[in-house]
Write a protein that binds this DNA or RNA. Sequence first.
DNA 1: AATGAATGAGGATTCATTCAT
DNA 2: CATGAATGAATCCTCATTCAT
Lengths: 197, 197, 197, 197
Amino acid sequence: MARTVTETARRGQIVQAAIEVIATEGYAKASYARIAKQAGLSSTGMISYHFAGKGDLLREVVGEVLRLSGEYIVPRVEAQSGGRARLRAFIEANVGLAAVYPQQLLALMEVLNVLGEDPQGQFAETRSELMEAQVRAVQAAQETGEFGQFDARVLVTAIRGAVDAVLSRAVKDPALDPLAAARELAELFDRAVRPAN
Amino acid sequence: MARTVTETARRGQIVQAAIEVIATEGYAKASYARIAKQAGLSSTGMISYHFAGKGDLLREVVGEVLRLSGEYIVPRVEAQSGGRARLRAFIEANVGLAAVYPQQLLALMEVLNVLGEDPQGQFAETRSELMEAQVRAVQAAQETGEFGQFDARVLVTAIRGAVDAVLSRAVKDPALDPLAAARELAELFDRAVRPAN
Amino acid sequence: MARTVTETARRGQIVQAAIEVIATEGYAKASYARIAKQAGLSSTGMISYHFAGKGDLLREVVGEVLRLSGEYIVPRVEAQSGGRARLRAFIEANVGLAAVYPQQLLALMEVLNVLGEDPQGQFAETRSELMEAQVRAVQAAQETGEFGQFDARVLVTAIRGAVDAVLSRAVKDPALDPLAAARELAELFDRAVRPAN
Amino acid sequence: MARTVTETARRGQIVQAAIEVIATEGYAKASYARIAKQAGLSSTGMISYHFAGKGDLLREVVGEVLRLSGEYIVPRVEAQSGGRARLRAFIEANVGLAAVYPQQLLALMEVLNVLGEDPQGQFAETRSELMEAQVRAVQAAQETGEFGQFDARVLVTAIRGAVDAVLSRAVKDPALDPLAAARELAELFDRAVRPAN
DNA sequence: AATGAATGAGGATTCATTCAT
DNA sequence: CATGAATGAATCCTCATTCAT
């Protein structure tokens, strides 16, 4: 059960290769063969040896990127106090990821698009937990009167979608300035959550 | 070159079957074999006979759903006058689709997620044309002072993403009331575009 | 059994299309679909309707080209008298075909290469008959002392192979002058058949 | 990159099976399924596993037979000195191959007939190099006065075609004595190249 | 006489996975 | 721990042919 050092290293190497392949060639092309080639491995058997199956590998890919994203976003949000400042930080940090981990984000989106359908997925859990936390944060800001009255769940969903859409464009279109777009998007939602004056 | 009645009917039948399979089992499972079974055809050869290739079939699927969507959305938007009313109508009509064509929308998202990577795709064109039109409409409303000053392109991208996210939830989670969510989302963006007072 | 005018015309049209496809794209690409397209027909069913099978069509192709070849070669050989003159005329007429019917010859070679393996083929008969006639002509010239003593069968085979090789080059390499090559080849075999002095 | 012992053995086994199938059933019947069956393999996947594609396999087939042919012909030609003796040795060794490697030669002819159309083929190169070398050898003999004056290129082409034709007959018709035919053919061309006296 | 729709077998190839070494 | 060989199901697609109209 416990993993040796080599084992962990190998898994990391394969996960990294998988991310690169998915990001540059798309999920559909991410076969064991292609990933093994990217990782400089001589056979696909290696991958099967280290992972219980393709699902296991993809789960690791998603987990890795989520970990990176969390490490980037969480401190930036927590550095702020107050709903508006936190919302702005959340959006800017999210979009800012495009500049730091473009490949990883591309890979994440690809994989979630496909695994998202599997309702048995263990990410459904993670994702809904995350969402609930965000919903509660929004509701707290509504109670203090910092945010207006609206369906917090819809807001969170909308932000998630809007951020992903901008992220997707930022990652694919180098002409777009992620920082500027992040600021625009943050202001957009800042206006959207203001209480009626 | 001209298409027969039977030919058109068969193509429609196959497209319909493809939509059902993609919606219920996911893009990855949408093999010719699976689609043929769904359509009640005895062999996959039939599909190859009627479509130039898998790309041809998927293009038809996308085209069909876009046609349905356009038929639903366009009159609802054009019935309104003024930027705010039109924006609201656009968002509500988009989310309202979830109630009318849930399967078709699921299929559309699946396919676009995969075909979207192909930069040679003819949908890149359609999509960017559509986006440009929407950007121009927003800019027109900004010039009349109806909307505030912000990056129109970011707004359009954000709306697209937010709508898709809500749509996706609406389609998968029957507990969500699409009409209520549509209203919420419309008001959200209505606040977001208002000029500073 | 008797063929109508239309029937004959259609068959001719299809045979012509088949020759063009085989010559330009090779035997392997000469499917009913490709031939129907070349002939401007809307369905492959037409070909099956007019020919008993692919063998039937190919037989017609070979027959047609052999007919054309015969019409060209025979009078040119028969215009000469004496073994040497006839041999020269035979070789020159054969190679000369490259200038008159290049496509047809290419198609013929392609088809015979494939059908040649079928030992049941009706061309085995035609070909061996033709060969026997040529062998007898050579032997006659040997008896008059015009040709030297050697195995007539080997000579005929060698000429056939040499002519085909030169023909093949002439048809594929436009830089080669077929007439000059024909003369060279004729003189080559003229020297080869001379009796020892 | 480097090949294992097993790998090499398997490839050899598959190439051998391919040669047998092509020789006995013709190129058209040489599907992966048929070859796998001949090699005693349980699935066609094995062939794809060991060869990059059908072209790769066929290239190996051609290469193998050319190698065998070269090993047989070259020492026999080089053992002779002088143009006439070498020409005779070349022709006799070529035809003599029919007795040693009948299957391999059949397979070679089949494959080259089909691959010969691909002008991008790497055999075009090998073949034209070989031909140029032969042309130069003939021209050298012409300069010493050993051979008469004629187009060396036509001679080489003619010999190639004549040898192939005799070879083809020798391989298919067991009644023909290859050695006798070889001698006859050698003498034929010996007379053809003699200088005018 | 002709058409176009349908068939189903067979084509090469890729896939994730297993297993003996 | 790692390897590479093997597997066989599944992929899309093309083929010649048949049949009702």
